[in-house]
Design a protein around this nucleic acid. Structure first.
Length: 570
RNA sequence: CGGGGCGUAGCGCAGCCUGGUUAGCGCGCCUGCCUUGGGAGCAGGAGGCCGCAGGUUCGAAUCCUGCCGCCCCGACCA
């Protein structure tokens, strides 16, 4: 492609709307332009990068035995009502009515549609397993779109769905995807970790998120420094903290704590550590109040709570909700004589003689002991893990790091197939629901993550497999016949050899060409200029290493053609 | 949904508080000259319903009200 022909509007200045580096660079490098909040047009250069990712995804999905199809973006509400998600999905699902007043929605995901296809077409165990995928635009009406392509409302996603006869076979399908995903992200040149994720009601270790490690990530992940363990913060299991206190139980005692509601204030007033206090948090679990006990210096992990209670949603109660449920103002809530359901973090049960609210305004209780003074309906791991906790697998030291979720694989089981009556006949003639799995990759987000991980102060540094063009040839003086002829012949030969090359043939000053070349981030830059006119010398520069070598034109041709043959470039 | 900020030329901004010439500046764009190894220089030029609607006023980019859009932060640790 010739730079003089391509639609590639680069920007010298950074638009004010862009916060994170990938967003800034993508705007400056002419990848995309915003149409409205969280919705972008992909311009040729950005689209080319997206296509690179798609191609890798296709190759690896096909290699893993999946087949591509394409499903509609507009979906009838009826289908969503079958699984109950039309009501449950929440405002992220964009709903609308067509001219006949039929309720419809824009697909944020396609479990319903794919399950509908399969239940109509497949009826025998002989047809299984099957894994179908698509690369398609999704729409989710995000509460707050941000960071450009990182969290848009409209985005390109690869989603795959597997159908199997049994849990065992579904797990095999799952593992195939796990391996395929590792290959995909490795081929994209990304530094990533596969982490155990929240698998919700399904349980088991059949949900992994693929996280690109980058500071701007929206998720926190826990990584063991000693072993392979890595998990999403939401899922990271806290090991039970030892045998527990052996202190003698002291007599329960009520004490006045006027106006002291927060943990810090109570602790300071009573002269104790937060670790000697147990706080009582009221949550609304699908609308019903539940009190949760955790140590004063700990934080409740809402996802763990949600899973324990087997509810769709938990939300910290506001002051009014908490008061309505308990009759006690927040700050003085406690487990002793609690008016509502009570669940406790496992750590609390190991403590002795701690402080809690007294269920009475301006009062706390001293020397509270579990078992003697209160019973919890359930005891479980309910708190957020910290770096002070040990690795749940090997006991090693943990580190927290930020990650960008680029892929998620999930064993669904039979929840969708049962609700939608998607069944097949097994060997014995029995009707069984399909065992399903789903596997997503945020294709457009992969591009953003790649830039987030690969850039410098001058611009993008594309991992070779994602680069829209592998090299840019700078013709520094299009008016000079010798220089132009050399640049053109090089462009022609490399193109003929199958290399994607950009020829900067614009009538611009050299400085502008160098700056654009750096910004656009193509792996190699070849400069044909004054030194060629005088001595036949051209320069080959590596964008990533900054390494630059001067050589004769013919030498350079040999060198690059060798790289192409080696497949190090394509 | 709550809080904050912003909307003035394609982009980045000033002007608004304290109403009053022809609404400015930088970048970009067009024409010409000149220049050609890190976003040059000179000269000329095009481009604005000052987000939209209403109000106050002799007079509104500027003050008031409403609406729309965009960005950022937060969404509750008792």
């Amino acid at each position: 492609m010739r730079y003089s022909q391509i639609f590639l509007p680069t920007l010298k200045e950074t638009p004010a709307e862009a916060e994170v580096i990938s967003h800034r660079l993508m705007l400056r490098a002419g990848f995309m332009r915003k149409l409205t909040s969280g919705v972008y047009s992909y311009l040729p250069y950005g689209l080319a990068a997206i296509r690179r990712v798609e191609q890798i995804v296709r190759e690896e999905m096909n290699r893993a035995g999946a087949q591509e199809l394409l499903m509609p973006m507009v979906q009838p509400a009826d289908l969503w009502k079958e699984t109950g998600r039309y009501e449950k999905y929440g405002p992220e699902l964009l709903r609308f009515k067509d001219r006949h007043d039929r309720e419809s929605c824009l697909g944020p995901t396609h479990e319903e549609v794919i399950t509908d296809i399969i239940r109509r077409e497949l009826h025998s165990y002989r047809d299984l397993p099957v894994n179908l995928y698509q690369i398609q635009t999704k729409f989710r009406d995000e509460i707050r779109p941000r960071f450009g392509l990182m969290r848009g409302r409209e985005f390109i996603m690869k989603d795959a769905y597997s159908f199997d006869v049994s849990d065992e076979q579904a797990e095999t399908s799952y593992m195939k995807m796990y391996e395929a995903y590792k290959r995909i992200f490795s081929r994209c040149g990304l530094t990533f970790r596969a982490v155990q994720a929240d698998s919700g009601a399904i349980g088991g270790n059949f949900s992994h998120e693929f996280m690109v490690l980058a500071k701007t990530g929206e998720d926190t992940i826990v990584v063991c420094t000693a072993c392979e363990y890595a998990a999403n913060m939401e899922k990271a299991e806290v090991k039970t903290a030892g045998p527990g206190s052996t202190e003698e139980m002291a007599a329960l005692k009520k004490t006045e704590t006027p106006g002291k509601r927060k943990v810090d204030a109570v602790c300071e007033f009573l002269g104790i550590e937060a670790a000697r206090l147990v706080k009582t948090m009221v949550y609304m679990a699908d609308g019903n109040p539940v009190a949760v006990l955790v140590r004063g210096d700990r934080e409740v992990e809402e996802v763990k709570l949600k899973n324990l209670l087997k509810v769709a949603d938990v939300d910290l109660a506001d002051d009014k909700q908490a008061f309505d449920a308990t009759g006690v103002p927040t700050g003085y809530l406690g487990p002793v004589g609690s008016a509502i359901r009570l669940v406790a973090d496992q750590e609390v049960m190991l403590m002795r003689n701690f402080v809690t609210g007294a269920n009475e305004k301006n009062h706390h209780l001293l020397n509270v002991n579990p078992g003697r003074d209160f019973q919890a309906e359930a005891v479980a791991d309910l708190r957020k893990i910290t770096t002070d906790d040990a690795c749940p697998v090997c006991g090693g030291r943990l580190e927290l790091t930020e990650g960008i979720e680029v892929g998620h694989i999930f064993k669904l089981g039979t929840s969708y197939s049962e609700k939608m009556q998607a069944v097949f006949q097994d060997k014995d003639g029995l009707e069984k629901p399909f065992v399903m799995g789903c596997y997503g990759i945020g294709v457009s987000r992969v591009v953003a993550a790649a830039i987030e991980q690969n850039h410098d102060e001058n611009g993008i540094i594309f991992p070779v497999p994602l680069a829209p063009y592998k090299a840019v040839i700078l013709n520094l003086d299009p008016k000079d016949e010798k220089i132009t002829e050399a640049a053109e012949s090089l462009y022609a030969e490399l193109s003929l050899a199958g290399m994607d090359v950009l020829l900067d043939d614009r009538d611009e000053r050299p400085g502008a060409k160098f700056k654009d070349a750096d910004l656009l981030g193509m792996p190699f830059r070849i400069t044909v200029g004054k030194k060629f006119a005088s001595g036949g010398i051209v320069e080959l520069r590596n964008r990533k290493t900054g390494e630059s070598t001067e050589m004769l034109l013919d030498q350079l041709k040999v060198e690059l053609l060798a790289k192409i043959a080696d497949a190090t470039v394509n």
